Amino acid sequence: MDTSPFANGAAYVRGRYVPIAEASIPVTDWGFTRSDAVYDVVHVFKHGFFRLDDHLDRFIRSMAARRLKPPEDRAAIEAALHRCVALAGLADSYVAMVALRGRPRVAGSRRPADCDNHFIAYALPWIDVIPKDVQERGAHLWIASIPRVPDASVDPTVKNYQWSDLTSGLFEAHDHGFDTAILCDAQGFVTEGPGFNIFMVKDGQVLTPDRGSLQGITRKSVLELCADQGIEAKVAAIPRALIEDADEVFAATTAGGVMPVSRIGARILGNDRPGPISLALKQAYWQRHEEGWHRTPVRPLEQVAAE
């Protein structure tokens, strides 16, 4: 039995490393009161980060887009991620990096420039946004009635905590006995789900939405795998009617990888089981992990402690 105080996870907060249960922010932080934060999540598989540079690139872009400048530079951010994982002693991990607006230095100020931005990192035991047993039988997805927030209002390519519409979609899905939801925009085009990108397969071609979606790192990986395997794939506008007529559907995210779907609304896909292309891509995704694809080894604790 692991008695380490970091056994349930480790966090970096305000320059200190603490057990995850002790990680906190002030209730007056705009990251909390206004959801004024950006974040990213990278996973660790068998002691190695997957596509760490891609996640750091996206995090840096997100911070720039929201004018967030914590004291830590890219090298310090990366070191904090390594040390959180090393402290927690996790072979497989969900690792988050967050930049928050902070509290105003001037009492009562409504100027973002008056806030001291700060950075948080933490590592937790592996998380699947769709549980593994659900992935095995294929997830049941509900198409929510509430539309996704417009791209012009909240840029979906900047990873953020604005989840009100996604959470409302989850309410609907769970109320109807489904596992999770996907949302369409106000024009009826498919966007994404809460924490994952969506893909569909029709007549052997793989499609993923061109709007309302994070440009996911796992999404990028799936498109690369399709190219490697000679599967036609493209980013395209997907009307709701098209995904409802799909041969296969699957979700993709850092926290779970390629996750097959067996039902979309009232439609049962592939005899209520994951489809062949979905399964082939899932197998290839994890096989490439085993081969060290885009792998960055987690630095040992003694190394990161000395940095």
Rank of each mutant, 00 (worst) to 15 (best):
L166N: 10
P112F: 09
V206W: 13
G193I: 07
E192S: 06
G188P: 03
I198N: 01
A173W: 02
G138P: 06
V190E: 03
G216W: 05
A186H: 15
K132F: 00
T180L: 04
D155S: 10
N197S: 05
V134A: 08
A121G: 04
S109R: 14
P125N: 04
T208V: 03
Q162E: 04
Q162V: 03
H118T: 04
P209I: 09
S213G: 01
R148C: 00
S164G: 12
S164H: 14
V129P: 02
T208K: 07
A144R: 05
P131I: 11
D116S: 15
D165F: 05
Y122M: 04
K159C: 02
D210R: 10
P131K: 12
C115M: 08
D114L: 10
F119P: 04
Y122D: 00
R111Q: 12
V190W: 09
I143V: 15
H118S: 07
G193E: 01
A113G: 14
I130K: 13
S109P: 13
D133P: 03
A121F: 10
R148S: 00
K132V: 06
P209K: 13
R110T: 13
A186R: 15
G138A: 06
I130A: 04
L166V: 10
F196I: 03
H140P: 00
S153V: 12
P156M: 06
E172M: 13
E172F: 12
W126P: 01
Y161E: 00
G195M: 05
S153N: 07
N160K: 03
